[in-house]
Computed example of a mutant assay.
Amino acid sequence: MEKSKEIMSRTANIIKSISNQPYILSGLRAASRIDDPRAQRVWPYLFESSKENSTCVTDEEKIIYMILRLYAIHQQGKNDQVCEFNRNEGRTFIDELIRLRRLLDDVNGLDRRVNNLLATNNINYFYKQLVILIKIMKSKNDDFKIDYVNLAKDMYYLQSYSSSKKIRLAWGKKYYKNIKY
């Protein structure tokens, strides 16, 4: 539990620090991996409070990087902040997917993507599906806002098989709750 709170805090602080820095955001969008040279733009923020002295990137750093990249993709071209920081009213990623589904005329493609997202145990595949879903949200040009800090916590728990099942089940229940087939 302590690790997830640390990840959430670090993620929030970094997003607040880089939100008005287009050079860093463009590097995040261009670099799908943390070891890409363009990702080095965010390293000072990502590694400044790192407790690790090894040359390996920790799982926590990978998760935070993934979230920062999702945020950068979502923030591109937007004047208003796309990260929701008010946890009491914050919109989760799955909440925004539900809202997106209501806006679409043809929901079959979105439902397939969500099915793929919820069916995988592979965090890298899960992340790739999140990138695609963020891009679909952006294409609707609506005011989607996501609690990326909460998403970081979920991504942290997705690393473990037992907690991954719980997160995916909770997301699935919420997504399919009001859908009539």
Results as ranks from 00 to 15, higher is better:
Q129I: 15
T58F: 02
Q76F: 11
E84M: 05
A12T: 14
L110H: 04
K5E: 10
V149E: 07
K165M: 08
T120A: 10
T120W: 07
S9W: 07
L151R: 08
I98P: 01
R101C: 06
Y161E: 11
S160E: 12
C56E: 11
N116W: 03
S19E: 14
R102Y: 04
Q159S: 00
D143K: 15
E61N: 09
K16R: 15
Q21R: 15
R113A: 09
Y127L: 04
W43V: 06
K153D: 13
I94N: 00
L169P: 00
E61R: 02
L104N: 05
S139E: 13
N53Q: 10
Y65N: 05
L70A: 10
N121H: 11
I64H: 02
M155R: 02
I136C: 05
G109C: 11
Y71Q: 07
R87N: 08
A31L: 12
K166N: 09
P44M: 12
Q129W: 03
Q21M: 15
K173W: 00
F93K: 05
Y65A: 09
F126L: 10
K145F: 01
A152N: 03
S17D: 15
N122C: 07
E48Y: 11
Q81F: 06
F144L: 00
P44V: 08
S54K: 04
F93W: 05
S9I: 10
L151D: 06
R112W: 02
F85P: 03
K165A: 12
T11P: 06
D95P: 03
K16F: 03
K135V: 05
M155T: 05
R33N: 14
D106I: 06
Q75L: 06
Y71I: 10
L100E: 08
F47D: 02
N121K: 12
K78G: 00
Y125P: 00
N122W: 02
T120E: 10
I94H: 01
N121V: 01
Y127H: 15
L97Q: 01
V149W: 00
L169Y: 04
T120P: 09
L117F: 02
D95R: 02
N13H: 10
S139F: 08
S139L: 13
Y157A: 03
L103T: 04
V82Y: 00
Y148R: 04
V82C: 13
W171H: 12
N121Y: 08
I94W: 00
K180E: 04
E2I: 11
I15P: 06
S160K: 10
M66Y: 06
A170T: 04
Q40A: 15
G27N: 14
A30N: 13
T11Q: 09
D35M: 11
G109P: 00
D95Y: 01
Q129D: 07
R41H: 13
D154N: 12
S26N: 15
L158M: 07
E89A: 14
I179C: 00
G172Q: 05
S32W: 08
W171Q: 04
